[in-house]
């Protein structure tokens, strides 16, 4: 799992980190936070996209190996949220890259983030199975 903050207010970022700490502990589901896009197959993005983060998001996405899934965490990453009217916000993450799972909330609660990650794992498994089938 790779976490990137596109332009969020920190609230969701902290909750994402919270998911890795003892109380919620995402690692028990076999998910590890990494800083390296080449080793990640799940991209977790918080916050809406602006012109500066757009290229970074695209680059991170292209660096990740196939198959991959994208999770938009928080309402800003889904649609732009309260910042939608700002001049420097393009909107949700799906304006830049395809998104597989949307996790709503302001800030998204750790429970719903975990739920989103679980859904993403299922989608990842399906994508992987489909890819193997294609290769044969």
């Amino acid at each position: 799992m790779l976490h990137y903050d596109a332009s969020s207010c920190n609230g969701c970022d902290i909750e994402v980190l919270d998911c890795l700490t003892p109380k919620y502990d995402l690692e028990r589901f076999g998910v590890i936070n990494t800083g390296d896009p080449f080793q990640a197959d799940m991209l977790l993005i918080t916050g809406g996209v602006n012109s500066q983060t757009e290229s970074v998001v695209k680059q991170l996405y292209s660096q990740m190996p196939e198959p991959k899934v994208v999770i938009a965490v928080g309402i800003c990453a889904c649609t732009g949220g309260v910042f939608k009217e700002c001049y420097n916000i393009k909107g949700g993450i799906d304006t830049v890259i395809p998104v597989d799972v949307y996790v709503p909330g302001c800030a998204a609660r750790p429970e719903s983030i975990i739920d989103g990650v679980m859904k993403a794992i299922r989608i990842l498994d399906e994508k992987r199975a489909a890819a193997i089938k294609d290769r044969r």
Binding site: D5, A6, S7, S8, G47, G48, N50, Q52, T53, V56, F83, E85, C86, Y87, N88, I89
Partner: peptide, 14 residues
Amino acid sequence: IGFIHRGLEKLVEK
């Protein structure tokens, strides 16, 4: 800086 600039101060006009 500027990766998370949103221009929130401008929203007081809206």
